[in-house]
């Protein structure tokens, strides 16, 4: 048996592709792509989808490394202090990188420490109830919630998360009071709704697409209807200026030299604008974004202002 496994080792050696050297000076070696979440999560899936084409565009190997912990704060804290040489990039999520420094004591990074290369994808958040629920439309939901304050249990995943913020904004805009049930992830949240243990959930579009046969999605936070959810109205259609969502992008430490950052930015933008990639993420229920570095920075700055206001209103801002 030992011999057999040694044979496998030999095979494995042969399969290891040699390091390709790019034409220009950068990159000279492999680039590490840090995922601040567990393998198998959406950020991981995105990175894996980008990996082959990124390797082609940059002419080097991309190593995907997982640093899950503290809802991403662990990776971002370490990454903000990483060597700014362009050989490590890190996935970023909005609002996570905005909310954590504002509200968590141990999240030792600042939003501006992470320089976004691009924001490639957005996951709209929608409000859904179980199929067979007596609530059929957003209006019925709001009316019921107004008549019975605190009676509707709504599942969110994670406190101070995109879902939580969406819920706070929704309550404010509609003058309702909901009982928030905070689950530890999207899977238990969906299970609880399907099993009838809670009334409604704030769900990511990708999950809502998966479960559309078992749930009634009342409204979704996009500007136009989604192709994958053609029968679901947007909040905007229903008269609310409300676009809850989670955005994903990729960043380098803020002191990374501009020319290297520009090179990475281009490679990423080329990758995420490829047709095949766009088709895959659209089918899975996401919305392509394709913001470049400058646009992404502006976007993050605007969102930061918005969220700071919201946190102050609910007294959730970290007192320093």
């Amino acid at each position: 048996m030992k011999k057999i496994s040694l044979c496998w080792l030999a095979v494995a050696f042969l399969l290891v592709p040699g390091l390709a050297i790019g034409a220009a000076d950068f990159p000279k070696g492999p680039i590490t792509y840090i995922i601040p979440f567990n393998p198998g999560g959406q950020s991981d899936v995105e990175a894996r989808l980008q990996q082959p084409s990124l390797e082609k565009n940059l002419g080097t190997k991309i190593i995907v490394e997982y640093k899950p912990g503290a809802g991403g704060a662990l990776a971002w804290t370490q990454f903000s202090k990483a060597k700014p040489d362009g050989y490590t990039v890190c996935g970023i999520n909005i609002p996570h990188i905005i909310l954590q420094p504002l509200s968590q004591k141990d999240a030792a990074f600042k939003t501006v420490d992470l320089k976004p290369l691009c924001i490639f994808e957005s996951t709209p958040i929608g409000l859904a109830v179980k199929k067979g629920s007596k609530i059929n439309t957003l209006k019925e939901f709001i009316d019921f919630a107004k008549a019975n304050p605190g009676k509707i249990t709504v599942g969110i995943s994670g406190k101070l998360s995109g879902h939580h913020m969406a819920s706070l904004q929704f309550e404010k805009k509609t003058g309702t009071k909901l009982t928030l049930v905070t689950f530890t992830g999207a899977a238990p949240q969906a299970t609880a709704l399907l099993g009838g243990h809670i009334e409604a959930i704030w769900g990511n579009s990708s999950d809502l697409v998966s479960y559309q046969n078992d749930m009634k999605v009342l409204a979704i936070g996009t500007e136009k209807r989604m192709d994958t959810l053609p029968d679901v109205p947007t909040f905007q259609e229903l008269g609310m200026k409300f676009y809850p969502r989670i955005d994903r992008g990729v960043a380098v430490p803020k002191d990374t030299p501009a020319d290297i950052a520009a090179k990475l930015e281009k490679a990423f933008l080329d990758t995420v604008n490829e047709k095949e990639y766009l088709a895959k993420i659209t089918k899975a229920g996401f919305v392509a974004m394709g913001l470049n570095s400058r646009e992404a920075m502006k976007y993050i700055a605007e969102e930061t202002e918005e969220y700071t206001k919201l946190l102050v209103e609910h007294d959730l801002l970290l007192k320093k």
Binding site: N38, P39, G40, G41, Q42, D44, V45, R48, L49, A187, A190, T191, L194, V209, S210, Y211, N213, D214, K280, K283, A284
Partner: peptide
């Protein structure tokens, strides 16, 4: 049957489905 991952290994498998362009879920 539900597209719900009940542990971390299955969650990685679920992620793999998405990479291959398979929409997990009840169907």
């Amino acid at each position: 049957t539900l597209g719900i991952p009940c542990n971390s290994v299955i969650a990685v498998l679920l992620g793999a489905f998405m990479i291959y362009g398979i929409q997990p879920g009840p169907m």
